[in-house]
Write a protein that binds this DNA or RNA. Structure first.
Length: 390
DNA sequence: AATCTAATCAACCGCCTTACG
DNA sequence: TCGTAAGGCGGTTGATTAGAT
């Protein structure tokens, strides 16, 4: 039996709030805060249930709310986040200051969904609607790297142009190619072992290359010698970028940890709030390592682990200690209080990443511009700014 | 001007999670 | 460990507004 609705009590008002009610609620919360929403209506002199008060406050009356239509960049960010997180509106909202989950949800349902459909992209899977391979996993857990990974040619400027037929064409072509590869490698799927599937996935991911969105190009190892204050060295060796906004995800490391990846064919992508597994032991699945308030939703190539789903196996534990805040798409995330150690991908030979040719074009106190040799285009290209947050 | 339809979004409902005794 | 209360979240509803006929 379900719980009784809190507003079923006789005498409690429902429906749209009046200006007078708003004023009462605002005045009360500004003066007293809200220790207990259930008590708020009584104390504020409102004939509403606490839940209704909370909703009205968080979605409408809060002074830090940003009103008005969402900007293009906000819309881009919502699409990107949704491809990782699915309908986790509150999570998405947490990346857009001044916006509420309700507002984003409404905007998604009334605007973005239609826009995506119009250009031939399934708003659920974020993949082109035509020739879709059935994917029963919800976004955030599925192998939804296709959208993000599709615009290889736009490696350095991967914003999804929703008005661009060209982008859509790229998506379609790309997907068809990969579907064909999948079909050929899995012609008799029942005979394919899990291990083989993993390898296929890795190969496939390699073909996807580094996508737009929150990106961390693991083809480049984080060198051991980067000191927290040595931004120049750090920036040159830590190409952790938010491809969507041109910001960097800032990793700070201390001591002599290494972050390596299985081989040059693999990708590691961080999304959501980034980062970290802790205290990896050899052979340990990293989903056992995710801790604390750091919501981890990253994927190694197409293993796609998001905390509760599959995780790559750490076969050689290296460690990286977070010592500073991290900057992620404009959000400052707190470093863990304790010594959290992040991990850890399989070590490979030093020459695993021949494409890397990191360089600093300009280095300032808070910003560093970087370039590197794009292994796909073979050109040396500007990667944009890394914003450093001390 | 009247009516119909579609779009929008605030608000509600009910389930889930968390905190606490 | 269990039960309960409260907060939080995502899906849905329905009143209102805008645009089309």
């Amino acid at each position: 039996m379900g719980r009784q609705p809190c507003c079923d009590k006789v005498g409690l008002k429902k429906g749209p709030w009046t200006a007078e009610e708003d004023q009462k609620l605002i005045a009360f919360i500004l003066n007293n805060g809200h220790c207990c929403w259930r008590a708020v209506p009584k104390l504020a002199g409102l004939l509403r249930c606490g839940k209704s008060c909370r909703l009205r406050w968080t979605n409408y009356l809060r002074p830090d709310l940003k009103r008005g239509v969402l900007s293009d960049s906000e819309e881009q960010l919502i699409i990107e986040l949704h491809s990782y997180l699915g309908n986790r509106w509150s999570k998405i909202a947490s990346h857009l200051p001044g916006r509420t989950d309700n507002e984003i949800k409404n905007y998604w349902n009334t605007h973005i969904k239609k826009k995506l459909k119009r250009i031939g992209i399934d708003p659920v899977t974020h993949r082109p609607i035509t020739d879709q391979v059935p994917d029963t996993n919800p976004p955030g857990e599925s192998n939804n790297t296709f959208l993000r990974a599709s615009n290889t040619e736009e490696y350095l400027a991967p914003k999804l142009d929703l008005n661009s037929h060209n982008t859509n064409e790229k998506l379609r072509t790309f997907n068809n190619d990969n579907d064909a590869k999948e079909a050929s490698t899995r012609s008799n799927d029942s005979e394919v072992t899990e291990e083989e599937k993993s390898i296929d996935s890795m190969t496939e991911a390699a073909q996807l290359s580094v996508p737009g969105g929150y990106g961390f190009d693991p083809r480049v190892e984080l060198l051991a010698t980067a000191e927290p204050q040595n931004f120049e060295n750090f920036a040159a060796t830590s190409p952790c970028f938010d491809f969507l906004n041109g910001n960097a995800m800032l990793f700070q490391q201390q001591g002599s940890p290494l972050l390596r990846v299985p081989d040059e064919e693999c990708l590691l992508e961080f999304s959501e709030d980034i980062i970290g597994c802790a205290n990896a032991q050899e052979g340990e699945s990293s989903d056992q390592l995710i801790k604390d308030e750091f919501s981890v939703n990253s994927c190694l190539s197409s293993f796609n682990y998001s905390g509760e789903t599959q995780a790559p196996i750490c076969s050689s534990a290296t460690e990286m200690q977070w010592t500073h805040d991290m900057l992620v798409t404009g959000s400052i995330l707190p470093a863990p209080e304790t010594d959290m150690q992040a991990s850890l991908w399989q070590e490979q030979p030093e020459d695993a990443f021949p494409g890397w040719d990191g360089d600093i074009l300009h280095h300032g106190i808070n910003v560093a511009n970087c370039c590197f040799s794009n292994p796909f285009t073979k050109k040396k290209e500007n990667l944009g700014q890394i914003k450093l947050q001390r």
